[in-house]
Every structure is written in structure tokens, then in C-alpha cells.
Design a binder for these strands. Structure first.
Lengths: 202, 202
DNA sequence: GCGGTTTAATAATGGTCGTTATGAAACAGC
DNA sequence: GCTGTTTCATAACGACCATTATTAAACCGC
């Protein structure tokens, strides 16, 4: 009994998920959400509860629909395969959609309204400058023989920045110093070895 | 001529920097900023311009005061030392202050008002669950000999998550797929080798 | 002590936020 | 066709946001 719902509830949740993915939790306003879902505000409230509940439901949907590579990875036979599956799965998911890059978990907190976009650009640019300087330093190292001929300075610089970003996120999430030092140590374990500068000089 | 300023402008900027560090750009309101600086709104506006300019000045101060390990690193003799200095410098800075962990660049976009805190906790918790599952998988791998006895499952899991976080941040910043695959590849280059499951079975 | 000028504090502005009250419209059973 | 129930769209709510107009207070040279 009663008037029947005129919109597809699954479709509206997908639209909301997409908006959250793109703009983060706080960056997504009801103006954005209703525009994407093609549904007025009270309809979203009655269907999903308030904004926080809507986000949580979008999160569950995200997990079920896009994060399957995680449980998949855990079933693989070797630890290396587990790690590879997670890493390449993340790369794939994070670059799959041009209009909402990154992952919902990180973007959710890496939020921001449209007005704050210039500030985000400044921060992104700052990181890009740092990465370029590191890459140039590594190119010199390669020329000097400190890094082997096979080394890729741009990949090494990007890797270094990625680990640094990851450490920053984890620190914000409350990880202790010892754990993060372990992360740094592990990152260094893979460092390509060239001939030592001392050897070449002697 | 004219009334002299009653507050220390450097001290106010330090206070603002601290607030931005803790709450991010959008998460920091003028209520927070004035409370921390001990100065009324119009004073901040006349001294630093609007919020965006204030943030940019705080960013410059942050760079000068806390990011010195970056240019320092670039002067070291070997690429490995450069990388190590950056990584451990980041760990140190990100865990130095208990009341504002992480780095200003990441926190600046990893923003959020106080009301969004529960949502951030959900996201943090989600990542923590994923990390725990990975760690448990790696502990099994160690027991099975797939990871060597010297391997540290918790450090490996934390490292894996850090790289994944870093990839997500970089994807959001617009890095292309190929670059991120290079990051994943580099992360795998350090993977500790145990005896292969096939070898042990044969 | 009196203009001119800079800063201080109070309070108001317009806008946007998440949330909801309100009443019309669409259905079910009788 | 009427009653009861659910959904619809419009519009309003109070709270907070960044920004600024306004006025009082503190200083300079004279």
C-alpha cells in the first residue's frame, strides 16, 4: 500500500558512491549527491538515512563491487603472489576510471569541496617538485655509476614518494614510529646496487 | 605612526601552521585558527590575507622549518643514502608531534572537520582490518616456509599497505598507470625469498 | 591636546551546509 | 469515492562557514 518508489534505489547508491569516490566524504554535498542520483534530498534521506549512513552503505557497496581483489589475493599460494596481486590490483582500480581516480578509502578522507581545489593543486605541485628533484638526483647517480645502468630514476623517485605518502597516511592513522621505521627499512631492502663511489675512485 | 600591533606575527603563523597540520586546510575553521593564535579574525586577515594566503604562508614556513631533510638528502653521496635520509626523515617528522601527526602536505588534503571524525575512523579501521588479514596470511606463509625465518610479517604487511596508500594518493594526483606499475614493481623487487612451495613438495 | 593613521574587538553579511517540516500526488484496500 | 499510507517536490530550518563593515582604542608628529 502507498505510493510506489519512482527511482531505482541501487542506481541511486551507485551514483552516490561515484560522487563520494570523486569528492570524498565532506567534499560531497547533497547538491552533488542529488544531482548525480537524479533524486531529491528527502528521497535520499528516507532511503538511506543521513549522510554518514549513506556513506557507509556506499562503502559496503564499494567493497563488494571493487575490492574483490583483496580477498582474492589472500587465497594465492605464495606471499609474493599475494603482494603482487594486491599491488597491481590497487594500480588497476586506482587508474580504471578517469573521472574518479584513487580509491574510495583514501579519497574519502583526502576530501575537499570544489572551492579548495586551488589549495590541493598547490600541495600536489609541491610533491611533484620534490619528486622531480629526487629524480634528477638519481639520474646523476646513474651517470656516476652509483646506480646501475638498469636502474630507472623516474620509477625509483615515484616509488620513494609513494612510500613517503603511505608513511604519512599511516602516521595520521596512528601507527607508531617503530612500525613506520620497518616500512622505511623494507623500502630500502630493494635498493638497486651500483659500484660504490669509493671503489670507482680508488 | 598608528597603533602598534599587539601580537607576535611569527607566533600567530606558527599557531596557524599547527592547526592546519592537525586538521587540514578545510578542516581548520577561523574559530580554530583564532583560538590557537589568541587573536581575533580581522587581525589574521590584515596580517596574512584570506584563508588560502594564510595556508600558503604556513606551507612556506613548514618547508623552511620542518622539511630541511629534503634538500639535505639531495646532497648525500649515494642514491641509497638519499633514499634512506628521505624515508627516515619522513618517519621522524611524521611521528615527532603527538598532537599533529602525519605531514602537512598530506594532512592538508586529508582534511576534515571534527564532525567527520567518525567517518575517518571507519576508513582507518577498514584499512587496519585489511592489514591484519594480510599479516595473518604472511604469518602462515612464514610457517609454511614460503617466507624465510628472518621475514617480519607485520613489517611486510605495513609496507604493503604503505605502498598501496602511496599509490592511491599518487593516482588521485593524476599519475598515469605506467608510473604506478613501476612503483608496484619496485615494491616487489625487495620481496624476501623463502624456499618455493613446489621445491618443498617435490 | 589634536588630526591622521593603524590596530583592536564586536557583530553583521551572504552563502552553504546537513536536515526536516509541509503539503500535494500516487497507490492499496474497502 | 473514501481512508490510510507511502513517496514526491518545494521550501524552510538553524548552524556554521569565510569575509568584512563598523566603531572604539592606541599610537605618531605637531
Amino acid at each position: 500500500m502507498g505510493r510506489r518508489r519512482e527511482f531505482d534505489i541501487e542506481q541511486a547508491l551507485d551514483a552516490a558512491l561515484c560522487v563520494f569516490w570523486r569528492k570524498g566524504y565532506e567534499g560531497a554535498s547533497y547538491a552533488d549527491l542529488t544531482a548525480a542520483a537524479g533524486v531529491e534530498r528527502p528521497a535520499l534521506y528516507s532511503a538511506f538515512g543521513n549522510k554518514e549512513e549513506l556513506f557507509r552503505k556506499a562503502l559496503q557497496r564499494y567493497y563488494k563491487r571493487f575490492l574483490h581483489y583483496m580477498p582474492e589475493a589472500l587465497t594465492l599460494p605464495t606471499a609474493r603472489e599475494v603482494a603482487a596481486h594486491i599491488l597491481y590490483g590497487a594500480v588497476d582500480l586506482n587508474t580504471r576510471f578517469d573521472d574518479h581516480r584513487g580509491c574510495l578509502y583514501i579519497n574519502g578522507v583526502l576530501a575537499g569541496s570544489d572551492e579548495a581545489e586551488p589549495v590541493r593543486q598547490v600541495l600536489i605541485q609541491g610533491r611533484a617538485i620534490a619528486e622531480r628533484e629526487i629524480r634528477e638526483r638519481f639520474e646523476r647517480a646513474k651517470a656516476e655509476g652509483d646506480l646501475p645502468e638498469t636502474a630507472k630514476p623516474d620509477a625509483l623517485a615515484a616509488f620513494l614518494m609513494a612510500v613517503t605518502h603511505g608513511i604519512a597516511v599511516q602516521a595520521k592513522a596512528g601507527f607508531n614510529r617503530q612500525t613506520l621505521e620497518g616500512v622505511a627499512e623494507q623500502a630500502l631492502a630493494s635498493w638497486p646496487q651500483g659500484r660504490s663511489p669509493d671503489t670507482s675512485a680508488g
